[in-house]
Design a protein around this nucleic acid. Sequence first.
DNA 1: ACAAAAGTGTTTGGAATACACCCATGC
DNA 2: GCATGGGTGTATTCCAAACACTTTTGT
Lengths: 231, 231
Amino acid sequence: MDNKKKYEYDYWRPAMTVDNVVLNFDGNQLRMLLIRRGDEPFKDQWAFPGGFLEENETLEEAAQRELKEETGINKAPFIQIGTFSRLDRDPRGRTISTAFLTLTKPSENILKAQDDAAEACWFPVHNMPALAFDHEDILRKAKFILQVLFHTTPVPYQLMNNIFTLPEMQRLFSDVFEHEFDRRNFQKKFISSGILSPVANDNKERPNAPIYYRFNNGGFYTYQKKKFNIG
Amino acid sequence: MDNKKKYEYDYWRPAMTVDNVVLNFDGNQLRMLLIRRGDEPFKDQWAFPGGFLEENETLEEAAQRELKEETGINKAPFIQIGTFSRLDRDPRGRTISTAFLTLTKPSENILKAQDDAAEACWFPVHNMPALAFDHEDILRKAKFILQVLFHTTPVPYQLMNNIFTLPEMQRLFSDVFEHEFDRRNFQKKFISSGILSPVANDNKERPNAPIYYRFNNGGFYTYQKKKFNIG
DNA sequence: ACAAAAGTGTTTGGAATACACCCATGC
DNA sequence: GCATGGGTGTATTCCAAACACTTTTGT
């Protein structure tokens, strides 16, 4: 971190950065975390939080560190989205960035008070502002991967609290697949699948109160095994 | 490429490399291309072909260039597998590698005569030798992504000739999913899906001769649209 | 009163699964 | 003649899709 120190190599090397696509579902809308850039390039534009890789860390560790530094959220990234290397993606020079997807639960949406100039904000996935760098590319790929993950992994349950209602879950799926599902079929499908277990209704029974469910890990894997056979 | 020239940066940078997982299906087995390393580290061990990123190219372009240089195969990579950054993955120092998946057709399996010391060879995916570096990690992730691609994209048809038989296609699926499918159900599924069109039997009709099909792009997309609804 | 949100059940069609036999070829 | 590989059909089961009404709460 010494500004005077120079690093010298026999061959050209690119600068390596990481970016975080952080998801949060507030029970109503799926949202992504953006920060408003305080410096050039792209000053005042919105971007995914990220920064430069350091010498003693993997890309995954760098992503987690940068996220914590910039937003106070301390959560390991879930999966790689991809690595972006367009020659002109950063006007400062040749940088290559690996983007990660991080999933947070509603209870984890607390943003630390902005200590650096950067302003952080959640944006609904279907109402995103213009993004800096090639972050539109990252966004596109993130959305696609999210759909694949929703098909094949228990990712949805890492975006909701441990206890959730089916209408809530359906709103999450609608946001991810950009499609409105039939409420009755949606509920039937997931209840019959064995993926969800109803939670004993705490106390007062209001007739039409939403029923809470929790994710059933064992049920999920037997369900996936059945489903993941032929292509 | 001047050995004397030094590159100097204000901050530390990693060396960036690319690796290619090249697939070929010979009608019977799915195979991957490996080269035997001629130099340390991991001298004489098998590895995926790859090399260092250069200044004026994207990762995708570097992957294609390296593949051509090392094997004579000139084919653009199809998709990224991931970026691998373990601190100890290369004993020479800190390198980060992005791996790509490349699909070739049976007719494209000609390896150029080895002009560098490297020896290149196709290995059946289920009979791979020990690999150099962290290439076992790359292999694992490549196999997983291939399964996802087989579920959602026309990748299988980029691994077969334009005209193919259903038993051939079934062997390909068996290799990818490591599962034996029922021949009758497999055929029924794909014939009824509209993805495949039978090819007019050229001339002589032998009673039990295999029937040739070709991939039907339009049929594929209407099929996917139906299938890709709920999770 | 009315709109909004959540609960519930039935029917129908299509796809996945399971399963057996015939024909031709090569050894 | 036997093993191998390829073609074909039927019955069942399960899941997906379509579809309407009631209750409660809040305005």
